[in-house]
Each structure stands twice: as structure tokens, then as C-alpha cells.
Design a protein around this nucleic acid. Sequence first.
DNA 1: CGCGGTCAAGCTCTG
DNA 2: CAGAGCTTGACCGCG
Length: 302
Amino acid sequence: MDSTPLHIGYACINLSLQANKITTNRGMVKKTFTEKGIAYASELALKNVRDLLTIVDWNLEHGFQLFRISSDLFPWASEYRIATLPDFAEIRETLEEIGARPIRLTMHPGPFNHLAGQGKVLENTIKDLEYQSDVFDLMGLKPSHWNKINIHAGGTYGDKAATLARFAKNFSLLSENLRARLTVENDDRPSLYTVTDLVSLYEAIGTPIVFDYFHHSLNPGSQTEEEAFLTAYNTWDVRPVFHYSDSRQEYEDPKARREAHADWLYSAVNTYGREVDIVFESKMKELSILRLRGETIEVVPK
DNA sequence: CGCGGTCAAGCTCTG
DNA sequence: CAGAGCTTGACCGCG
């Protein structure tokens, strides 16, 4: 196992900086949004975006050239256009600065996105995904799978094939830039989508498959890890980003649900001699990777 | 200022 | 049949 991922990263939260209140997840409940409106949303978004720049720079200083950014940078983003925010000028400036950094940024919008959905569900999905793509546009990033916007296929509605066909049909409703960025990931439960299930989607609309090692182990379908890895690998037109985490049940708590991710990382990643970037989805975030490297870092507020 | 109840969205599974 | 969990806990009112 001599092949090291070229870029490694983690998802959304930097625990070292969060200890000093540097975070990109500021939001508000519905009541507050109703009371304070987009002025407050703008204020929170600007703070989130500024802290994202700090996190990106921390990452570069610590050898992380890949980072999944939060999909909650802009609270209640579905209710306004980013360009209408009072702090838009500063927000855009900061996003441009982030986009110019030598780091690969990705997104993983939430589980409410169902591109195969209908009516309101589909409407909300398109709105959310387009907003995420707008953020990458504002960063000045050329649309490609290098900066993936990754989602799951969603529910099955009792019929996987028909649902994937609807997903493919609705894909044509998306903007060109979003279509160029969208990827899909294999699911962790046997009722949902395996890598081979997603191949038909790739054949129909060219969306690369994000291989999640842990999900595959829980829902392998008919493929071995190597087969699924290579199947997914071959759907990419740039270096793939794959996801890795260890099982909480296996390594930390026998009573944990089988889908639960471990806090830390335990086993080595086999990339089968291929060049891939890896997002580690361990609960202890960057700390679990630093620990693997034999580095430690104090997480205490300054 | 720290604590705990509460929180947009959709689907699936668990208890 | 209500609630947890998902990708990632965080907000906010109360004492």
C-alpha cells in the first residue's frame, strides 16, 4: 500500500480553530430570520466567509490542500440572492480571495436535496444546488468536477431505476455550471444506491461517482472494494475525490449503529495504485489526520 | 455566561 | 408511528 493520496482533507469543521470561535456554520432559527431578515443573514454570512478564509489558510499551513466547505455558509440562502446582501461587496471580495488559494474546495449539500423528487421537493433541491454553485462562481472557480458539488441520489421511491431516470431528466433543468460540478456518491444502506447502481446515471448524464469506502463496506452490492473503486475511478474526468472513514462500531463502540463514523482513523487507505484525493470523514476532523501523521496540536481557546 | 430544549427542508430505518 | 440520523451541531431563551 505505497500509494499515498495526493491531496487529503476533511469536512466542514476545523476543531483547532473552532476552539477560538472560528467557524463557518453560523446560522439562525426561522423565528430569528423572520425577525431580523437578510441584514442579519448578511452579517452572519460575512463572518462565515471570513472565517473560511482563515480555515483555508490554516489548512495550507498544515499541509491540507483539499477541504470540503460547509453548505451552510449563507443562512437561509434559499430566501434571497447572495448579490442582494448588504455586505455583498466584502463577501465577494473574500470569496475571490478564497478561490485564488492553492487548495481544492468541494461541497456536499444536505440530505434534503432530491434531484429525483417532484414538485416542491425538486424546486427546493434546484434552488439549494444552484446557490452552492453560485458560491463557487463567486470564488472565480472554473466549473468542473475539480470543485465537486456532491450529493446522494436520494430516496428510491420504491423503484431505483425509475428514480435514477427521473434524476437524469431533472439534471437537464440545472445550470451549465452546476451540471459541470455535480457528482453522486454511493449510499451506506442496501436499500439505496451502490456504485454499480450509479453507473447508469453516469452513462446517461456523465456525473462522476464519488466512491465512499465505508459506505461500500456496508452496501457493497456485487462488487469487491477494488472493483467498486475502479468502477467509480473510471467515471472521472479529473483526479477523483473519494471519501474515507472508519467504523465506530468496529473500532470505538460495539453498540454504535453500523453506519456511524468513528471519531478517529485506524486503517490505511488502499488507492489501488491510482491517484485520488481523499476527504476523511472522521468526527475528530483535522485532529485525526494530524494524529495519523504523528503530530499533535493543542485545542484550547486562546 | 453556561445550560438545555429546540430547530427549514425529505427520505429511510429503528425502537 | 414518532423520532433519529443524515453532511456538519448550533441557536437562543432562560436562569
